[in-house]
């Protein structure tokens, strides 16, 4: 009885939220805008308008909301064979979340060190990858946006984009070969006599971090480029004319202006790194424990879908909370990012 009520609520809730936001938006427009403004249907004609509504609605509900909700619902159930779904053994439970913290569905004696550590490290390492990607991309984006002559700009763009025509997995394997103990990089280092014996780049996770940073390079590059590109060159020159050294211009004129682009790029790289699967699985060393492969294993090794759902949800919510907090600290609104 309670079960079905909760279930109904769970599935109805998003529609209530959507409806609430819609009502709020309409009220806001009434209050702010021209009250005689024509409505959505009047502006577009009912054929186009209904197509838009149904298409966007279906996309949002079927592709985004429902799958996620199924996951949420799943994560609050015990692991059962499919024939018991909805049966008498099925009930709502927090045991999957409990397991994440304590490594057991019931006991509280010890913490689930391995998973917690992987989770924390994933978040930390994603922050690291994001920061590294930012510092790597910023000079290039600045050069493209403010310095490069048009012909050079096109060339750089092409050089940035073309490698991404290669499949992600293939790229990861290529990096693996490159970074291997008998790979090109080690061969060169040894041949040059810079190191005595090959460095285990993969074991040190250097391969993985490189792969992650490389995979999401463009997602940092283009928001940065767009933001810096719209900065008036004269402002940079004015700052220089007033005596500013180059670092001061970047810190106090360019970066504040490009802040929305920085936020947008960092958010995407962070979210995608934390959720990356290919690079950690292919390039991760034997000791590395990225969180996403653990989630993957919950589903496909342990066949524990409810637990996998819980883990995925924990990662998603933590990332969202983290990003929101950082945006807040840097005083960037969500609206600015999507500009």
């Amino acid at each position: 009885m309670i079960e079905s009520v909760v279930k109904t609520l769970l599935y109805v809730a998003p529609f209530v939220v959507i409806a609430t936001f819609w009502v709020m938006a309409v009220r806001e427009r009434r209050a702010a805008g021209d009250p005689t403004a024509r409505g959505f249907f009047e502006r577009n004609g009912w054929v186009v308008a209904s197509y838009l509504l149904i298409a966007v609605g279906l996309w949002a509900v079927v592709m985004v909301v429902l799958p996620q909700l199924t996951m949420v619902d799943f994560s609050f159930h015990p692991k059962l064979p499919p024939k018991d779904y909805g049966g008498p053994k099925d009930h709502y439970t927090l045991e999957n979340y409990h397991y994440f913290i304590f490594g057991s569905t019931t006991e509280r004696e010890s913490l689930n060190i391995i998973h917690l550590r992987a989770f924390g490290l994933t978040i930390l390492a994603s922050v690291g990858v994001t920061i590294f990607t930012f510092f790597f991309c910023y000079p290039i984006a600045y050069y493209m946006a403010q310095v490069a002559p048009p012909a050079r700009l096109r060339l750089i763009m092409l050089m940035l984009i073309v490698p991404f025509w290669v499949n992600e997995i293939l790229r990861a394997f290529a990096l693996r070969i490159l970074f291997g103990t008998s790979g090109l990089i080690n061969n060169v280092l040894v041949a040059l006599g810079l190191v005595g014996e090959p460095i285990d780049f993969l074991g040190l996770d250097i391969g993985m971090y490189t792969g992650l940073a490389y995979a999401y390079l463009l997602l940092m590059m283009f928001p940065l480029y767009n933001a810096i590109e719209s900065l008036d060159k004269n402002q940079i020159e004015a700052a220089r004319d007033l005596g500013a050294p180059w670092w001061h211009i970047h810190a106090f004129v360019v970066l504040p202006f490009a802040k929305p682009g920085v936020a947008s790029g960092c958010t995407m790289v962070f979210m995608l790194s934390a959720g990356a699967l290919a690079a950690p699985q292919i390039l991760g060393g034997p000791n590395s424990l990225w969180f996403t492969p653990i989630v993957y294993d919950r589903f496909y090794q342990a066949f524990n879908w409810p637990q996998g759902s819980a883990y995925a949800l924990i990662l998603l919510l933590t990332c969202i909370a983290f990003v929101m907090a950082v945006l807040r600290v840097f005083k960037v609104s969500l609206g600015e990012i999507t500009r």
């Binding site: 004269n234 020159e237 004015a238 220089r240 004319d241 005596g243 500013a244 050294p245 202006f257």
Partner: peptide, 20 residues
């Protein structure tokens, strides 16, 4: 000697005030 080291100050055609 760069513009930041010269005893001159330039007022740009579009002023180039810092909007933020």
């Amino acid at each position: 000697i760069g513009p930041n080291k010269r005893p001159t100050a330039l007022i740009f055609q579009n002023l180039a005030l810092f909007p933020l």
